[in-house]
Design a protein around this nucleic acid. Structure first.
Lengths: 241, 241
DNA sequence: CTCGCATAGTCTTGTATAAGACACAAGACG
DNA sequence: CGTCTTGTGTCTTATACAAGACTATGCGAG
């Protein structure tokens, strides 16, 4: 006699709850049912449910607050910043970037983009070029590439102001895209003339090149981001445990 | 009526077990007592003990194997490599480095070293200069700085061969130093003449500069390591979750 | 008799349940 | 402005059974 699903029950429950969040059944910021209620509905014990919830919390999909309830994590720009933005100044303090959009376009994915985003070559992607400004100085030049299928309408009238970062957050919330994980490849490169112009630095200045691929809670690749960081006054901080 | 220790019981138990490992009470690779026995000895329920053990396992301090027992993690060079070594080749595959020691010395800590290692300026440190070779080519030039107080005798007759990495692992195991966490600051820099000589690259080549501080299970700073990685054929892979 | 091997026994950690005491938050009420 | 009540998540205990891993036993083949 073999079970239909060999995974532990708490993993199955985790998957069920994950689906409900991804599918928009429970929306961003919304409170989940109380634990006893939810456990009863799912037909599992409170302990098993709590174990599943603990795993979801570890993945930052939900937030639990004693006495208040359990909530689907709201993806504000501050939240995403704290979780994924690793630039620090030389004193080790987090830095608050301003954003300046320098260009937006839509077109077929290049071979490189398609491979990274797991698309077929030629599928439509949106591209956003922007610079990020720390303490008045431009320090990052980056290009964000998004699968158009996941962000319909993003190509439309887009204010060249810094709104774009907010729009981006809005799209994630509205489309059930909950960012969960990023994989990054880091290397060093020399500033090209284009980089030098954007970053206001001499040609050839060593830059930290960050190639990031981001995944959502459904396991989809949602973004490719290539950033060039001028590290003369900043560092990229990573913790390994 | 306030409790003497407001932390949850499972956290207190975790701290007790952590101490036993750090103090060498339970040695590297050794099996812990079985759960029921240990729970009885500590006067807590099996569930509470298991919760503490789960936390220790997450920190890689112990390893649990169903049917066999629970063991203090043994710090082999392979284990440390898998956990802390993030260099990949362009295909994304982990790379197996050879190591070549280029110099060993002992002396008073510089201001910079003292600050990073949390020592008083002038306290004795060991310094190991070495290069790391991937697929026949030298790709990393690095200096490791260790507090002499934690590694007594390391200054003595040291084979210039690649033994040093093994010796280093041995010292950690022998002195209750269990590496648990690293903090890294990444930036880009241009190869100096010294770098160029070691790495066999042109002067000015952009290098990935990695400044790493490593902590052990007792919360001590155990190592400062400054590495310069030639990223022409390799990447530094990081995952953010 | 000895070797090989299946298997039962027993020790280990892993999973799932249940129940009760506790702590925190928010609103109702005096 | 306190105090109470209610609803929430958190901690701790206890029990039972499942599953992995090793050991010993014993039986049969040679």
């Amino acid at each position: 006699m073999r079970r239909p699903d060999a995974r532990p029950l708490y993993v199955q429950v985790e998957a069920i709850l994950n689906d409900r969040i991804v599918s928009g059944d429970w929306k961003s910021g919304q409170a989940l049912p109380a634990e006893p209620e939810l456990a009863a509905e799912l037909g599992v014990s409170a302990g098993t449910l709590r174990r599943a919830l603990a795993r979801l919390e570890q993945r930052h999909l939900i937030e639990r607050r004693q006495g208040r309830g359990t909530y689907v994590t709201q993806q504000t720009s501050e939240q995403a910043l704290g979780q994924f933005f690793r630039v620090r100044n030389l004193a080790g303090r987090p830095v608050e970037p301003d954003t300046f959009i320098t260009g937006v376009s839509t077109g077929p994915a290049s071979e490189e983009e398609a491979a990274r985003l797991r698309l077929r070559q030629g599928e439509a992607v949106h591209r956003i070029d922007r610079s990020r400004i720390f303490e008045g100085e431009p320090r990052i030049a980056e290009r964000i590439t998004l699968p158009a299928a996941l962000f319909p309408g993003l190509s439309l009238p887009l204010a060249p102001a810094q709104l774009a970062s907010e729009i981006y957050v809005h799209y994630r919330n509205a489309h059930g895209i909950i960012v969960v994980k990023s994989e990054e490849n880091l290397s060093a490169t020399a500033a090209t003339e284009a980089d030098a112009a954007v970053l206001n630095c001499p040609v050839g200045t060593p830059l930290l090149l960050i190639e990031r691929v981001t995944f959502d809670a459904a396991g989809r690749v949602v973004e490719l981001r290539v950033s060039r960081l001028d590290t003369r006054a900043h560092r990229y901080a990573v913790e390994i445990a």
